[in-house]
């Protein structure tokens, strides 16, 4: 696949793995909050359900349908924030958004993002950034409601 070889910087193996076998897709029974996000541009969907106690996300379900970028980002996001504090999740969201905007991240910020660093290549494909951010906008809404 010589011609498509330069796609490897976008479609890292970790991304395709999360797309093929997304994590944390079991729906929560009676979640505290539930948020749906849709990208009207392409029709991609992500649903985030959260259960919290004492400021910790002790239950998360992330489901949806769409392209490999939107769905892998959703799956990795769920893995990252599961069991973390609301503050940690908010910080991760800010770091991921900065990564997509092409801003320089500190080592701490990169470490905060874990596997999501694999999505770095997306910033070279501006029309796909919205795909990567879809799940995070749902998470942001959900976190705001948790805190409200």
């Amino acid at each position: 696949m010589q011609d498509l070889g330069d796609l490897d910087s976008l479609y890292r193996e970790l991304i395709l793995d999360h797309h093929r076998s997304p994590r944390n897709t079991e729906p929560l029974i009676s979640p505290d909050v539930e948020v749906d996000a849709v990208n009207p541009f392409c029709g991609d969907e992500v649903k985030v359900q959260l259960k919290t106690s004492g400021g910790t996300l002790n239950g998360i379900s992330v489901t949806g349908r769409g392209c490999s970028i939107s769905q892998s980002s959703a799956s990795m996001m769920g893995e990252l924030v599961k069991g973390r504090s609301v503050e940690d999740a908010m910080r991760a969201r800010r770091a991921f958004q900065a990564l997509m905007k092409g801003e320089a991240l500190t080592e701490d910020q990169l470490a905060d993002l874990g596997d999501l660093e694999a999505l770095q290549g997306v910033k070279r494909y501006p029309v796909r950034i919205k795909c990567a951010l879809l799940a995070w906008s749902a998470l942001e809404d959900a976190l705001k409601r948790v805190r409200a």
Binding site: D3, L4, D6, L7, L10, Y11, C42, D44, G66, C67, S68, I69, S70, Y125, R128, C131
Partner: peptide, 13 residues
């Protein structure tokens, strides 16, 4: 393969 991923791949070509 999702249409969006197809579109990006075809654009490379």
């Amino acid at each position: 393969v999702h249409p969006h991923d197809l579109g990006t791949a075809l654009d490379r070509l």
